[in-house]
């Protein structure tokens, strides 16, 4: 298929940037979206132009690196997938595709389609951990009884790969779904109880300091999340926060 691409090009963090139009031809419907981007870049390199910079790593939907805003949606029009799992069969011959970086003040553009997601790392460092003695006498995790229900919910929350699609899809650029997944995965387990109050307070404080917006419960994040993280996690984080504040 032949496609028209409108891609955000920005030389560096200080550059103003603009949308630039490209044409790609003979794209197979079996290609992944990133393979289509590779074809585009090979063409650009052959012409002596600078290839389009975009984040990618595992290309199997588990690393959370790929981060393209495609035709107005993070990770494109399909559901429950990352950009690397998006196939070109989702598009038609002659389509025009808009490709943009995640847009949020807390995710500044580094180059072209690559954004700096260190804000998520700093939120994690503020409390997304548990204190475990790993000096050789670590307690066997299976020795601690955990209800199946909570273990499942915790596992669901832990599926978050921190890609930032929640922020990108939110009209408020809120990071609540990400932070709530990280808070929930520990809040649901006995190992997470000791630091529970400090964790939620510190992570929410860091989230606010990073400049993410306020959640207004539109639910867009849940729909666009490649890992199906539920809004129930945000409600749980709100409860945890209220509990910690009392």
């Amino acid at each position: 298929m032949d496609l028209t691409l409108k891609i955000w090009r920005q030389k560096g963090p200080q550059d103003k940037g603009q949308m630039v139009e490209y044409k790609v031809t003979d794209i197979s419907e079996h290609m992944s979206f990133l393979e289509m981007m590779d074809v585009l870049n090979e063409g650009l390199v052959a012409k002596g132009e600078v290839p389009v910079a975009f984040d990618h790593d595992c290309r199997e939907g588990i690393c959370g690196m790929c981060s393209l805003h495609i035709n107005g949606e993070p990770h494109g029009p399909d559901r429950g997938i990352t950009t690397c799992q998006l196939h070109m069969r989702m598009f038609k011959d002659g389509d025009t595709i808009y490709i943009e970086p995640w847009r949020a003040k807390a995710f500044p553009v580094i180059k072209d389609l690559i954004v700096d997601r260190m804000a998520f790392e700093r939120i994690q460092q503020a409390g997304g951990y548990i204190s475990v003695n790993t000096s050789g006498n670590t307690q066997d995790a299976n020795a601690i009884p955990i209800s199946k229900h909570n273990a499942d919910l915790s596992m669901d929350a832990a599926a978050c790969i921190g890609c930032g699609a929640c922020v990108a899809s939110c009209k408020n650029s809120s990071a609540m779904l990400f932070v709530s997944a990280k808070v929930s995965q520990f809040a649901l387990l006995p190992q997470g109880q000791i630091e529970a109050a400090d964790r939620v307070r510190n992570m929410v404080k860091q989230m606010d300091e990073e400049g993410f917006g306020n959640c207004t419960n539109t639910g867009a994040c849940e729909v666009e999340c490649p890992k199906g993280i539920s809004l129930e996690n945000i409600a749980r984080m709100n409860r945890e926060y209220l509990k910690a504040s009392m």
Binding site: M19, G72, P77, Y98, R103, K105, F212, T216, A220
Partner: peptide, 22 residues
């Protein structure tokens, strides 16, 4: 919340994931 997105998307398909009311 408007300030939290200083550069707007050229294309933003909000209707794909949330209601107009929200």
């Amino acid at each position: 919340n408007r300030g939290a997105r200083n550069v707007k998307y050229a294309k933003f398909n909000g209707a794909a994931s949330s209601t107009w009311a929200s």
